[in-house]
Design a binder for these strands. Structure first.
Lengths: 225, 225
DNA sequence: TGTACATCAGTGAACGCGCGTTCACTGATGTAC
DNA sequence: TGTACATCAGTGAACGCGCGTTCACTGATGTAC
């Protein structure tokens, strides 16, 4: 994106600008491939080919595959959290934006389009196994999400002290639902759909108070089945 | 477990029983290693060594690494969902068991002990990238969890029609919380702890009604910040 | 403005390594006579 | 009950393969004079 149009046709006309663009092309390819196939499944050969280059040039831009991963994580999270922010800023009804986000996130389209998936879930699976450097990029990106969502919760009336918690809670439920839905979709599509729909209903429609009752009320727990 | 005590010392005294036990030893090792390090990170060499054998014997027991993964998934899920069932059956206060499960699942101990982690979360990350065979094992195991939890929700007073949904919703929140907590823990332990604690509070203490208000009420959304 | 040279992005072959899988072989088990 | 032989779990070397990374080389960029 934002790429020089004659890039790929021209014979390396300029160097500094072109190199910066090529670097971006590698990061963009990494963003797509890491989300679609996972960090381990993407080789540098495939990665550089996807970006339009040969394998050897990789180390002119990055010191290691991990180094690239951290950069790619930052890039994806920046893109997505900026888009999220813009979504709210361009709408007058923030609460409608929330329901739209939830519907989109928990849609079968988002579940199935792994390569263009939200980083909060598609990068989370790899981040769990990654070292501190890559996790730092993930952690920072997740914080951006929490901040955007939290500030918008405040805008629609939540009190300050709860907004951050509500944002984390929402992300937890979105990520959990899509994780489980993706983990079963190849063998049991109905179950996968059910998970998405149940999570959506739990967030938007049903008052999920049962656990509250369990924790606070003492009654009725001994009238067993 | 249940292993022949002289196994490892004896010189292959019996074959059929011993072979069955050795097979179990490989599956057990796979269960631990796949959860701790992930499917891709565990080589058959390391796996067979951990089980006490040399690399070549693997194919006497399994037709492929995927085949083993499916068996290991089944084994872990059976063990865990049976233990879960037993936990409820041995207690007279099922609602106390629910809070205990939630506290344990969302503890820092469970987050950090990846090798002995609940399969619903530790196998989910790999299952997302696996093929139909392995996902079938994951899907079946997750169904077992939904059934155990759902039937216990009924026991503590939920109506039948909601119990299954409540079980799925609970699993979604537990898995989402531990996934995100693990994805950031190496770079930001406080954030990781906060995610666990927020999810716990969201399930057990705070009434997570904000989203309900957003969806159903029209008021107050335009009194922007 | 024109020439000489250092820089450095890109190439493609090569490095060592560990992967999943195969295979010839060993030797005790378990069976047939 | 005792001998002869098929079975098969375990061994360890080897297979081809793709991995992340290195390197000598190319040639245009960009700079110094």
């Amino acid at each position: 994106m934002l790429g020089n149009i004659i890039f790929g046709i021209s014979f390396m006309r300029i160097s500094k600008e072109q190199a910066a663009e090529n670097r971006r092309a590698i990061i963009d390819a990494a963003g797509r491939l890491f989300r679609a196939q996972g960090y381990d499944a993407v080789g540098l050969n495939e990665l550089m080919s996807a970006a339009g280059f040969t394998r050897g040039g990789f180390y002119n831009h990055f010191s290691s595959k991990d180094d690239l991963a951290a950069e790619a994580y930052r890039e994806i999270f920046d893109t997505y959290s900026n888009a999220l922010q813009a979504l709210f800023e361009n709408a007058d009804d923030a609460s409608a934006v929330f329901t739209e986000i939830i519907d989109t996130y928990l849609s079968t389209v988002h579940r199935d389009d792994v390569g263009n998936s939200c980083p909060t879930v598609s990068l989370a699976h790899d981040s769990v196994r990654q070292g501190e450097t890559v996790q730092k990029a993930f952690s920072h990106g997740l914080e951006q999400y929490v901040e955007v969502l939290g500030s918008q919760f405040v805008r629609v009336g939540a009190d300050m002290s709860r907004a951050r918690g509500d944002a984390i809670d929402l992300l937890v439920r979105l990520v959990g639902a899509v994780t489980l839905a993706r983990a079963v979709v190849k063998s049991n599509r109905e179950f996968s759909d059910e998970i998405l729909e149940t999570a959506r209903a739990g967030i938007l429609i049903r008052a999920p108070r049962l656990m509250l009752d369990l924790a606070c009320n003492d009654a009725s727990s001994n009238e067993s089945r």
